[in-house]
Design a protein around this nucleic acid. Sequence first.
DNA 1: TTTTCATATCAAAATTATTTGATTTGAGGA
DNA 2: TCCTCAAATCAAATAATTTTGATATGAAAA
Lengths: 101, 101
Amino acid sequence: MTDYSSDAKIFKALCDEKRLAVINHLKSGEKCACVLIQAMNIGQSALSYHMKILCDSGIVTSRQDGKWTHYSLSQAGSEYAAKRLIELTMPEPKNYLKCSE
Amino acid sequence: MTDYSSDAKIFKALCDEKRLAVINHLKSGEKCACVLIQAMNIGQSALSYHMKILCDSGIVTSRQDGKWTHYSLSQAGSEYAAKRLIELTMPEPKNYLKCSE
DNA sequence: TTTTCATATCAAAATTATTTGATTTGAGGA
DNA sequence: TCCTCAAATCAAATAATTTTGATATGAAAA
């Protein structure tokens, strides 16, 4: 029926502890991949893998600066994620035309 | 450092398309497991597995009625999920004591 | 242009999640 | 009590995700 793949992708970004730790690092501002690798004590390739998932979800954006990649939180992306979470879980209004009784 | 396991658990509930479809069914009100099995065209055991994940996240609650289990959306659970999403992704206020300049 | 460095990509291995079918549990009815 | 039924649990099979190490890409420096 309904296709939830793009919603699932958003929450997939948030369902992994390492990715939540990355997001936490980005709260204080843009960070280079090399900084995250050290701060998180993670392999270069593994970080790249997680950053791709975060970027694909829209919650994180990347900026290229020469050889460096800088990542930062996307305000718009997180707001959209929160909006979808609410929409997906909000109960439908019942009996909004309950006239009798 | 920080433990994100309980936050990850919340978003894990939302990162699977089948679980999002279950949530969508619950928007119109409480549903029995047997109804969900038919509506979703899923095995009994698989549904039980997904419902456990949804209940553990706090987004769904279950109510026992004789042999039947009824599931419904937890308003409090979804609100908590949305609150955590916002808290986790909200940038830290920068320079809140920027006196000079 | 050759070298160096940061990151992305790839393929294989390791880990984790999901499905499936069988069995168990526990509540109610006969 | 015995039987039936709904749902949970278990174990095995399958599928998806994540990690690891090697290699490729592409930008800047020498």
